[in-house]
Design a protein around this nucleic acid. Structure first.
Lengths: 402, 402
DNA sequence: TTTTGTTAGTCTAGTGGCTAAACAAAGTTT
DNA sequence: AAACTTTGTTTAGCCACTAGACTAACAAAA
């Protein structure tokens, strides 16, 4: 057994671990009685009673009226107090900023979206502050208030939370975490947008039942978030999942990263748009062509556009097949903007995978599109904040109760 | 804190965890005194004393004479009793079978290699039994005797230890684990050869200081073993790391797996040999051309052959770059037969990676060749057995001492 | 209605492994 | 020799757990 590598073990750790088990049980199976928790988790009734009391004091759970009797005393049902606090999740895109206020179960209580183009960092920062201010102000009164702020960004974030590079925003070496923490005096989590999306789908979306999920965020570029053994895998420095720049064609066209034949040259939104431009397609309203224009054309039955989508779906399949061979996942979820084109991508994509993936890899494998749509990332970072809050709550109370 | 998902926590777990910490400390820092262990792992002196006594009773450690005084009483030095038991590790290759007997520290005490060609399963099994018998018989007397048998195979092994497919041996759905367990009445571990190699390098070879290691086993085909967060990542069913069949050229030549442009068509030993045959190169002794012939030719200065190696090194780099983008590892280790050609592969390989890998991925990244040579896999499976034995020892004693 | 049986939740005593600190043992330094 | 240091053991106390007795609250049978 490989129990946590370095930390020593004592009764605090035991209590903390068990409290976490009890809380998770209540969250995932509410309403549930103390007795049922004890039986299902494998703890003594008395132990559960005591831990439940702690959680009640913390307002993390609450008792509802008595449940149905099964031939004896009626149980007191316990529920997760999802309104005990609220979390702010922000998804910063290349030309939009989407913010959500969620409760502790990830239910969206409020949201705000801003779209823009070519803003400077200072302008985006100002929009960011406004959005956070607005969402925080709109949170109902609750025992714990706002428990944290999470931000997803389309770029490279290191393990300390510093944004090393966000090419499409032209940001470099930006420590947004420090900026937000000092302004709001709250725990802040900065995460790569694909990682956030992966976590969002794991927690609240299509991936809730899987432990091994690969989330492919296909937008202007392609990023990938990895959920391995049930938790986010970030690699040595936090840079895992940069699969948009995986070579699928050794001597292919040159990518903005300097290499040749990168996956995102074939299967991203940008790839679609570039191909469409080459075909001399123009937008109906005279503006720059965008994905929605292509979708509209496809709906109108434009064969050329449909085949563009099919081509992209096929290439998506090529990369996803490489992913399957690498990770042997249970689930591959395709998210971000390209997910909106699932109708046109799906056939060629699944054909490619079912024809090409090694047979044993295809057992217990589902490939699907995002359930949370454009909210994946915002919900994911919000979930990070919530997780963090819950684990800290459990820790603090354990050590204070001494 | 995400402490183990499902198990409940009690005193046994605490003791088990701490005993494991103490044992690891002694293994990695011997000779060391009780006092030093207590200080470094953060446990109370008394606790350490008691745990050390348990370990002494188990013969897992022993006391040597007193160490140097630092101004007070001389410490009693503790050492890992690496001769407390022995483990058998077998690497089954396509045309060889390599067995080692190791002590609990992975030191090779005895070894036996058999080479063959086109043997049936029954013939290989018989060789396997002979090798195991020979190695077990040669083990010195020890408190725990043979603690387990590990076998690495060039094929697909599922999480239960069943060999689903070993194409080059023509094995299918073979439960070697059951066969060996019932014959030897010992714990048996069957593992994919690349996974075993990865673990071998992590435990005893080039990867001892890294937590995120990708081991590329480049032989006739290419397999990859993944060490993520310090432990082997096997994926949902045990089929991770099948990167030999990663597409690097969408419309490339057809692979035996049925797909096109697989990595191993460009960067494996077989790829080298096929390319050499096309050049009408022949072996000096009239037999089929093999890697050693090519190495000899390269040593003689044959430019054509050297450029074959260089080409393969470049393609190795292409795949490794994809790996880096996926996993953001600390270390990439190239092993198996192609590692013997490191001299000729290294330049083009490192050029490819340093030119192509994104700059931030190159910090704290080392790319190297196997340290254990042909022993990686055999040592790896042996290490699995040892790990398993040690963790079981700690558990049993904890629960029996009630 | 009363009795009996069942289930829920609390309470109490006991246990095991931990910590802190006293203590014994065995050195070095002055 | 006395004073100081360091190692390792022992003791007392603590804390979170378990088992099981107990109380509470219900259903079903008498």
């Amino acid at each position: 057994m490989n129990i946590g590598e370095n930390k020593t073990w004592n009764h605090h750790v035991v209590k903390e671990g068990n409290k976490s088990l009890v809380l998770k049980k209540i969250i995932n199976h509410s309403p549930i009685s103390r007795a049922a928790v004890a039986q299902e988790v494998g703890l003594n009734k008395g132990t559960v009673s005591s831990l439940v009391n702690d959680l009640l004091e913390d307002h993390l759970i609450y008792e509802s009226g008595p449940g149905k009797s099964s031939g004896g005393r009626r149980p007191v049902m316990l529920l997760f107090n999802e309104k005990a606090g609220y979390s702010v999740g922000i998804d910063i895109g290349v030309n939009y900023l989407l913010g959500v206020l969620t409760d502790l179960s990830g239910n969206i209580c409020n949201e705000k979206e801003v779209t823009f183009k070519n803003l400077s960092y200072e302008e985006i920062e100002s929009q960011l502050f406004d959005t956070i201010d607005y969402l925080m102000a709109s949170a109902p009164k609750s025992p714990h208030g706002i428990v944290g702020i999470g931000v997803g960004v389309p770029g490279i974030v290191d393990n300390s939370g510093e944004i090393l590079l966000a090419p499409n925003l032209k940001w470099k070496n930006l420590n947004l975490k420090l900026i937000l923490e000092s302004k709001y005096k709250l725990p802040v989590i900065i995460e790569n947008e694909a990682n956030a999306g992966a976590y969002g789908e794991k927690k609240f979306g299509a991936g809730q039942d899987s432990e091994h999920i690969i989330y492919v965020s296909a937008g202007i570029g392609i990023g990938v978030g990895l959920i391995l053994n049930g938790s986010l895998y970030k690699g040595s420095n936090g840079f895992s999942g940069e699969l948009g720049h995986m070579t699928i064609q050794v001597n292919g066209p040159t990518c903005r990263c300097g290499n040749k034949g990168c996956w995102e040259l074939y299967a991203s939104e940008q790839a679609l748009l570039t191909a469409a431009e080459k075909m001399q397609l123009a937008s109906s309203n005279g503006k720059e062509l965008d994905l929605n224009d292509l979708l509209a054309l496809a709906e109108q039955g434009d064969k050329k556009v449909v085949s563009l989508f099919e081509q992209a779906g096929d290439y998506l399949g090529v990369g996803i097949n490489n992913i399957i061979n690498s990770f042997n996942p249970q689930q591959v979820i395709i998210g971000n903007r390209m997910a909106s084109s699932s109708k046109w991508l799906n056939k060629t994509l699944s054909d490619r995978v079912s024809n090409q993936a090694l047979w044993f890899q295809q057992n217990n494998l589902t490939i699907c599109f995002s359930e949370l749509g454009t909210f994946s990332s915002a919900l994911g970072v919000s979930a990070f904040s919530i997780e963090n809050f819950l684990s800290v709550s459990i820790q603090q109370k354990t050590s204070l109760n001494a």
